[in-house]
Amino acid sequence: MIKLEGVSLVFTGRRGQEGVRALDGVSLEVGSGEIVAVVGPSGCGKTTLLELICGLQTPGSGSVESEPAALMPQRDLLLPWLSAADNACLALRVRGVNRADSLALVKPWFERLGLSGFEQTRPAQLSGGMRQRVSFVRTLLAGKPVLALDEPFAALDALTRAEMQQWLGTALASEQQPRTVVLVTHDVEEAALLGDRIIVMSPRPGRVIADLTVPLPRPRTRTDPAVVALREQVLELLGAPV
């Protein structure tokens, strides 16, 4: 459960002058277990939105309420000196779970996400898609009710991205208690494939210009006419030439 009310945030520039206005009067409510995709042009304050939800930023005005949230950053940000499995354990280890127990918790996720056999491999020797999956397991095992995913697949090639979007849908559905997910993306198709709702944001300063409910069941395919129509609708809202 997340609730933002009239949130504005201005980053002060150097020497105290008026800086970048990142968000302007953003109100947003996300129910428990909902998957909300946030789309918008680059620099519209999407990442700032996630940092507010994760408590890494405080709003200039307005209020932010959220259940504890774990962030999955845009870059995978794995620790180069740890093995894949130890990286996935990181949040658990910070919480005080011992290594053996953490690894036992990681194991089924590695099996589910096709990472079995790569437990001892260091990040530098994993492919981009695998690193993102390890990063995802790490976020998932942080044990927070809210997942804040910041462009999780932006850095991947089209094929891997499509694959990852598919398993993200399955992975989220396969959990016992569904998590609340805020998925920030600039990929409109990704939003149409995964979101229960799509929030469309304006260019800087970021405002919510549309809040679309997606009544389609998952898993969805990108060629489904309803998904295509939704994608076109969002692109139009973003001002893309039709």
Binding site: E51, C54, G55, L56, A69, A70, L71, P73, R75, L77, L79, L90, A91, R93, V94, R95, A142, K144, A148
Partner: peptide, 21 residues
Amino acid sequence: DPELLKLMRTFDASRWQQFRR
């Protein structure tokens, strides 16, 4: 990477844990 320390904070890592890990 400061982003890495931010990430550690979302895992509720203390200053000491951020340092150690």
